[in-house]
Every structure is written in C-alpha cells, then in structure tokens.
Nucleic acid binder design. Structure first.
Length: 395
DNA sequence: TCTGGGGTCCTAGGACCC
DNA sequence: TCTGGGGTCCTAGGACCC
C-alpha cells in the first residue's frame, strides 16, 4: 500500500520572518542579503520577484532592477527559532518528519490521515492552523514518494496545496519545463535542451526509447529519474539527518589577492571556526580540504589525509597552510575555505582506541589530546592510562 | 561591481595490495 | 617473461540543492 508522503515548504521564509518582526514590510519588495562586493539575495518577497529579482542574484543587480528594494541583512537566530517552531508544529501530526533544510521538511502522513474523508480539507486546515499559530506561510505537496511530494509543493506558491496521485504524474509533471525538474540544474538543463529535450515529458520519452545521447548524458541518474517519473523512488522518512559528513567554513576576501600574509590570517580564522564547530559536534576528522576560488570564479580543491583523526585548530591550520603554499602560492585568490572531512564520532573513536595497543599511541601528542577529549566528553574516563590499567590488573 | 556559504553525492584516475 | 584482475583508499573536480 502506497504511503502518503508530504513535502512542506515555507514560502519566502527569511523574508516572511522579517515581516513577522515588522509587519510594515508586508506587501513591499523586500530581500534578505548583504550589501557589498560579494552580497547576493538569499530570499526575496513575491513583490520583489515581480521586478525580476530572484535568489542568488548579486544584491547590486537586484537594486538596479528594483531601486525601492528593501535589503535586510538577515537575523539568523530568529530564523532558527521560527524554523524549530515550524518542525514542532508538524510533529504534532506525525512523528515521521525528515528535516530537509531550515525551511522545508518531508513527512509521512499515512497514519495521520487514516479515515479522513476530505484529504484536501485536512491539509488546508493544517496550513491555516500553521499560519494562525506562527504567521508562517507554507506550500504543501502530497504524493507517494519524496520526489513527487517535492515537485508537488513547487506547484503553487504561496499557500499552495497540490496532490499528485500516481495516475496523475504525466498530467502534472510532463508539461513542465526541464529546468523545473529536481536534480536537473543549470549545467544539465542546457545540454538536454540542445538535444531537443524541453520538457520533463520529452526527457521521459527519450529514456523510455533509450536514446543513446540522452542516456550517455545522464549516466547513472537515468535509472533514478525513470523511477521517479514512474512513481517509484524513496518514500523513506529519515528521522536522523543530523550527523554531518563534513564541517567546513569559507569566506570571500574583501578584495582579490595573491599575498599569502593576507590569506594566512583568514586560514587561522577558518581553522579556529572549523575546530570550534567540530568540537561542539564531538567530531574528529582524518582529512583537511582547502578550497580556493580564483579571480575567474573557478574552484580548486586540495586535500590531505592523516593517519590519526584530529579536531584541534592548529593541526587543521598547519595542514591547510601547507596545502595552500604547495599548490596555490602564486594564485590570485577570491575565496578561501577549509573543510574537515572523513569525520568520526568521538565515542566511536573511544571504542576503536580501546581495541588498540594503546601504549603505542601514548607518545603521540595528537592522540594524547584526543584521549583527554574523549574523557572530557564522557565525563567519566573511559580509557585509563596504560600504566594505570597495568597497576589495576596486578592488584 | 558578476556570482555567498553551507552542504551532499558522484565520477574517474592512480596507488597499492593480494 | 614484461604483464591479470578485483578491491579499497585517496584525491580532484563537478553538479546540484537550499
């Protein structure tokens, strides 16, 4: 039996939060984004969109399209509070909620709507209740897989409600422009267009016919897309999505430079920030990656993996520094970033360490620090010093 | 005045081991 | 003699999403 999978998307979330704080902003062209050389619009109101403003656009360009645009710097603490309030509200209906980002989630409503005669009325009421309680506006998509629910929630904004039954996939999705397909971005869409594929329906036809050029272009995702468009694909709600696979920070410099002394200061800051966040999450990593964007906006990555995991800022910094100096010494840099990868949980680490010949590692300073960290995080020491273990055993 | 900053996943080549 | 094939890890780069 098919499940009822719902995607709920908060409309113009950051801007809506600003309107909640200051209702005078309602019905005006508003955008959240920084001013300055690297400022871009992260969200904008529907009024601003009428002028051609959209997210991702440089703020100076948005201003030129819409001179009366009200630009807000962003109050991310408040957004976070509102975001949590939203998820709490949805969890009153079902415990199967998958947080997809600050302003959207998937949820399994199979049980929640059991016995409901008027499904449309049920979700409409939920949408109104959310608005009444939090003043947040949302669009709701209802279907049988996450992909279809996500596509459905995109149909009408703001305050949309769209239900796509399995028999209605063709009717709803096939006429849509290829750019509207989740997973097809700004690189793949033009390539598909050049093959004469303009709509999702066109794409499906080519896949069914196994047309060579299309299949080659899509690679492995061909099968995934076919499944999606035939009503298969994931309907699993992942409850725990809070386990990060990497922790990174990056920053666009105030001006492009090839002066390492300038860049070094940023590497120190970034290493400290990454270390701080990793420690907060009780994570260690084996690999440091640096990202550099050059004047032409092209990215370059270099990474290095060490034998033992770490999360202290100095190790991160030293690795980053070395990677930078050996690879990018004469490059003119626009942005630098540091990411800690190959993460391992401190507790997992403790278990692994206890299986090891612990004495062998005792001399290495990183490992010593690590053991202190583990003991600190577990409050009670889990690992005793090797010498103490010996003493206890002879007692 | 062209383009943030946080991520995830995939691909492909080379090293290395057996 | 001059070259197998499978598996895994590391690294670089690219596409995509919010």
């Amino acid at each position: 039996m098919a499940r009822v999978i719902v995607h709920i998307d908060l409309n113009a979330f950051f801007v809506r939060c600003e309107e909640i704080k200051n209702p005078a902003l309602e019905n005006k062209p508003v955008a959240v984004g920084r001013e300055g050389r690297a400022g871009i619009v992260s969200t904008c109101s529907y009024e601003a969109r009428k002028f051609g403003v959209c997210s991702g656009m440089p703020t100076f360009k948005a201003k030129s399209l819409c001179p009366q645009l009200i630009l807000m710097p962003g109050d991310y603490r408040f957004y976070s509070v509102m975001s949590k309030t939203f998820f709490k509200f949805i969890r009153r209906y079902t415990k199967f909620v998958e947080v997809a980002s600050v302003d959207e989630c998937f949820a399994d409503f199979t049980e929640a709507i059991k016995g409901q005669k008027d499904v449309v009325g049920f979700f409409r009421q939920m949408q109104l209740d959310l608005y009444k309680e939090t003043q947040l506006k949302c669009s709701i998509g209802v279907s049988i897989t996450k992909f279809l629910a996500k596509m459905a929630s995109d149909f009408k904004k703001p305050m949309g409600l769209t239900i796509i039954r399995k028999s209605e996939i063709k009717k709803y999705l096939f006429p849509l422009k290829i750019e509207a397909m989740y997973g097809i971005g700004k690189k793949t869409a033009p390539r598909l267009r050049s093959l004469g594929i303009n709509t999702i329906g066109d794409l499906y036809d080519r896949i069914v016919k196994q047309e060579k050029q299309t299949i080659e272009l899509l690679g492995k995702s061909e099968g995934v897309i076919r499944d999606w468009l035939e009503g298969r694909g994931s309907d699993e709600i992942e409850l725990e999505r809070d386990d990060p696979k990497s922790i990174g920070n990056s920053t666009t410099l105030p001006y492009d430079t090839d002066d390492y002394l300038v860049i070094d200061k940023y590497l120190v800051d970034l290493a400290q920030e990454v270390s701080f966040r990793a420690k907060k999450e009780d994570k260690l990593g084996y690999t440091v990656q640096i990202v550099v964007k050059d004047q032409g906006f092209k990215s370059h990555n270099k990474s290095h993996t060490l034998e033992n995991p770490f999360n202290d800022w100095n190790t991160i910094y030293q690795q980053a520094k070395q990677l930078f100096q050996t690879n990018f010494n004469s490059l003119t840099v626009r942005l630098v970033g540091i990411t800690l990868q190959n993460l391992i949980d401190l507790k997992e680490m403790a278990v692994q360490m206890s299986l090891f010949d612990y004495e062998k590692y005792e001399e290495e300073s990183t490992t010593k620090l690590l053991i202190n960290e583990i003991n600190r995080s577990l409050k009670k020491p889990l690992l005793k010093r090797a010498s103490e273990v010996d003493k206890n055993e002879h007692r």
